[in-house]
């Protein structure tokens, strides 16, 4: 997973969101809301974390079962893939369910 250039997390009006700046803003002029775990995952993803590392991060931070953590990470990544914010490197992503 690679975050495309120009996508950054910012707080706007008290809400953490992802927006596009610079060249990326020409194609993407909306925003994506990040909840608490979303912010945590985004920070790790921006530093190059793999899907497996994101799941481990969820398990280390929250008191959740592995399958729940895995599902949450999938939902998070799917949201970003659909919005064209990240490039998919590996192809083991299930293309299903989208979270809020």
């Amino acid at each position: 997973m690679i975050v495309k250039p120009g996508f950054v997390a910012k707080e706007i009006g008290g809400q953490e969101v992802i927006i596009a700046v610079g060249k990326a803003a020409e194609k993407f002029n909306g925003y994506i809301t990040l909840n608490g775990s979303g912010k945590l995952l985004w920070e790790a993803l921006s530093k190059g974390a793999t899907k497996e590392e994101l799941i481990s991060l969820m398990l280390a931070t929250y008191d959740v079962e592995r399958d729940i953590a895995s599902r949450d990470v999938d939902a998070f990544l799917n949201k970003l893939i659909l919005a064209d914010v990240i490039d998919e490197e590996d192809s083991d992503m299930p293309a299903e369910e989208e979270d809020e």
């Binding site: 009006g13 008290g14 060249k23 803003a25 002029n29």
Partner: peptide, 27 residues
């Protein structure tokens, strides 16, 4: 209304510079 519920509206109503640094300052 809460600002967090009007993010899309407010982003659309302000001038958004192409330069990233200026955009961050604007935010």
């Amino acid at each position: 209304v809460a600002p967090k519920d009007e993010i899309a509206m407010m982003l659309n109503q302000i001038y958004r510079p192409k330069n990233s640094e200026l955009m961050f300052l604007t935010i």
